[in-house]
Each structure stands twice: as structure tokens, then as C-alpha cells.
């Protein structure tokens, strides 16, 4: 008998008392009832608690803000679906950081990603209550490696994509895409429970919330 048949047989035998399948009580909150302003405020509070840096700006201010955050960077990478307007200021800045574009047709190697200083991406959905940003690999976010290897992640969140609580956010997501849920920069508390921000993932996370 194959291991598969064997294991399924053992499990069926273990369940020969035919245990009842219970009804799932879903009395927990399905929505938060927060409006956009309240969602922004809560998300900022939660992200700052994780030691991420957060700015809330109008769409017109995004390019200058990104240029400011990339000052001093030698190079940065973007997914090919990112809004080109966001990068206008950094690209015209004297002594600007060199832009690398990652695409399915011309993906950067891991070594190339390791040599860039920063990455700029959009995001799919955010969760205010938990301070979480979800990337789903859409063209403005790119494949998972580009937001992982560079040490500085600049992530743009559209205010209309902020959900109050997790159930609201997950309802807006296709679970079969490659997903990354990010809640602050990487961290460890493995040594005497003292929290250290920044281990293997990007050590610096800047979030730009666009009203």
C-alpha cells in the first residue's frame, strides 16, 4: 500500500466514531466601521509602534518625498509596473540614485538585487488595526525577491486600500497569489527578549500613505 493510502486509511480508522462536524460560530468582527481618516490614523500609529517611518501626503507630494528618502542611495530597484510619475523627482535630482527596473522579461539576479540600496513598491491592501501591509505581486509591487533583498523598502499605500481589520483586508485579496504580509521592519527578540529591529529583511521601512 502506498504511504498515501496507508495514512488516509489510518486517519479514517481513527475517525470511526464519526465525530460531529461543528457549526463554526463567526461572532467575531467582520468589519471595523472605521472611516478613511480613522483608518489612516490607526495605521500610522501601529506602523510607528513597529519602528517604521510613516508619512501621510497628497498624491502630488509623493515624487519629492521619494526623492528625499532616496537621497544618498547609490541605486534603487522598482517593479516595471510602478507609477513612473512617482520617480520623476528622484530621476531628475542631481547626483540621483541609479534606477534599476525589474520585470518578468528581464529579472535582476539575486547578486544584482543585493547590490542596490533600496526598493520602491506599491501595495495591495493594508490593515490599520495590526499595522500590516500586504503585497500580492501585482505589477506595481513586483516579485517577492525585489522587496526582500535590498536593505531599504519604500512602500506606497493608497488610503483607499486601507482596511480597518484583518477580515476586511483578506476579503480583498486573492489567496493564490504569492503574498507577503509586512508589519514593520524585520525584527528579532531571540537574545534575552531584547527587540532588535532589522535582521535579514529590509532594516529600514518607509511607508508613504497617499490620501
Amino acid at each position: 500500500m502506498s504511504a498515501r493510502e496507508d495514512i488516509l486509511g489510518r486517519i479514517r480508522s481513527a475517525l470511526r466514531d464519526s465525530p460531529e462536524v461543528p457549526r463554526i460560530p463567526r461572532g467575531y468582527r467582520a468589519t471595523s466601521g472605521l472611516d478613511e481618516a480613522a483608518c489612516i490614523e490607526l495605521l500610522v500609529d501601529r506602523l510607528e509602534d513597529y519602528k517604521a517611518r510613516v508619512s501621510v501626503v497628497g498624491a502630488a507630494e509623493v515624487p519629492a518625498l521619494i526623492a528625499g528618502l532616496l537621497a544618498g542611495a547609490g541605486s534603487y530597484v522598482v517593479p516595471d509596473g510602478l507609477d513612473a510619475l512617482w520617480l520623476a523627482a528622484v530621476d531628475s535630482q542631481p547626483g540621483n540614485a541609479r534606477r534599476r527596473t525589474d520585470s518578468a522579461a528581464a529579472p535582476l539576479t539575486v547578486a544584482e538585487l543585493d547590490s542596490v540600496d533600496a526598493v520602491v513598491t506599491g501595495s495591495a491592501v493594508a490593515v490599520a488595526e495590526t499595522g500590516t501591509i500586504i503585497l500580492d505581486g501585482s505589477p506595481d509591487q513586483g516579485r517577492r525577491a525585489i522587496s526582500l533583498v535590498p536593505d531599504h523598502h519604500i512602500c506606497v499605500v493608497d488610503a483607499k486600500d486601507i482596511a480597518g481589520i484583518l477580515p476586511e483586508a483578506l476579503r480583498r485579496i486573492d489567496g493564490t497569489r504569492p503574498l507577503t504580509m509586512i508589519s514593520g521592519p524585520s525584527a528579532t527578540s531571540d537574545i534575552e527578549l531584547e527587540r532588535v529591529e532589522g535582521v535579514h529583511g529590509p532594516r529600514r521601512l518607509d511607508v508613504i500613505i497617499v490620501r
Binding site: 501601529r46 516579485r143 517577492r144 525577491a145 504569492p178 504580509m181
Partner: peptide
């Protein structure tokens, strides 16, 4: 960990071409 959310959660479904 007593956190509202852990820093990273990864989800994958089989193979995604060009990613991972």
C-alpha cells in the same frame, strides 16, 4: 509573541512562474 502582528507572513500556492 504578544504582537498585534508578526513582522512577516509568506503565503504561496504551488509554483508561481517568475516568482520564487
Amino acid at each position: 509573541t504578544g504582537e498585534r502582528m508578526n513582522p512577516y507572513t509568506s503565503l504561496w500556492t504551488g509554483v508561481t512562474e517568475g516568482d520564487g
